[in-house]
């Protein structure tokens, strides 16, 4: 009976260790989010949203230009990336369903989802920034769109595949051409899922800094001209956090807080929607 006891003790010990690792993971989450909350809330003030940066080293000022710039870059990236992604996903799940090319593109997209974002930045620098001769908001938007396309494409494909084939057959039986079936029946069935996917992809690109460093660059003045360099929150965080002034550090914390809260809310919302729609 000794051996039995030993095995039971061993089993319990192993699970204590695995519980500890889970606590370890959650510890970092609490640590990081707590730290950002503490420093970020302390640094929040109304100037952050309504004033542009003060000259370097001067106290005060805000990040209005970066908030507006970030919003514009993300908006245009979404306008470019989402249609391409949704349509591409439609092709894979509908017209090319089961064909080799669909499988190939699907696998390639899965790989491209995780490809280094900074490489995308260098790519866009070569095809847009260099020929035009200057950094621009458009280049930033294109870089983010390139990161978005594979993400949206794969979610769309998955969500469309979840719509059962018999639903399509029912529509065919009524004499509907395929495009009508897709637009009016399949899209409707998968709408929640696709929208959630789009939301999550927006959350993902909102936090990207690396692809913006050499594309939209930075601008210490307020600008809404997408043809010029434009400020973004993430690039501002990088610049301010690495900079020497305490007032810069405080603003970097505040900007980090805004981005983190935005992303976490969207992510939680997305998960809740998926759970509510598909897990029942």
């Amino acid at each position: 009976m000794r051996r039995e006891r030993l095995r039971v003790i061993q089993s319990h010990a192993a699970f204590v260790v695995s519980t500890l690792t889970a606590l370890f993971g959650i510890f970092w989450l609490v640590f990081i989010i707590g730290d950002i909350l503490i420093h970020g809330i302390g640094a929040l003030n109304i100037d952050l949203f309504i004033k542009d940066p003060a000259p370097a080293g001067v106290e005060g000022g805000g990040l209005r230009n970066a908030f507006v710039g970030h919003l514009m870059i993300t908006l245009f990236a979404t306008l470019i990336g989402v249609p391409v992604g949704v349509l591409g996903g439609t092709f894979l799940a509908e017209y090319a369903r089961g064909k080799k090319i669909a499988r190939f593109i699907s696998i390639l997209s899965d790989i491209m989802v995780s490809v280094p974002a900074i490489v995308v930045g260098t790519f866009v620098y070569a095809i847009i920034v260099k020929p035009l001769g200057h950094f621009s908001g458009w280049a930033g938007a294109v870089a983010l769109a390139i990161i978005m396309i594979p993400v949206v494409l794969r979610t769309t494909e998955d969500m469309l595949s979840l719509v059962s084939w018999t639903v399509r057959e029912a529509a065919f039986a009524l004499g509907a051409p395929y495009y009508k079936v897709i637009l009016q029946v399949v899209y409707r069935g998968a709408a929640t899922g696709i929208l959630t996917g789009i939301l999550l992809s927006i959350a993902r690109v909102t936090g990207e800094a690396a692809p913006l460093l050499f594309t939209s660059f930075n601008n210490s003045f307020f600008s809404t001209n997408m043809n010029e360099p434009i400020a973004s929150l993430t690039v501002s965080i990088f610049q301010y956090a690495m900079g020497p002034y305490d007032s810069w550090h405080a603003q970097a914390w505040a900007a980090a807080l805004m981005i983190t809260v935005f992303i976490l809310i969207i992510t939680v919302l997305g998960r809740l929607i998926i759970k509510w729609r598909y897990k029942k």
Binding site: L29, I32, H39, A203, G207, A209, A256, I259, L264, R271
Partner: peptide, 20 residues
Amino acid sequence: IAIELLAAIPSIIYGMWGLF
């Protein structure tokens, strides 16, 4: 969900938190 939230935090936040 907690673990997946950890995955959603952008890398620049990790970097800044690491520095400060």
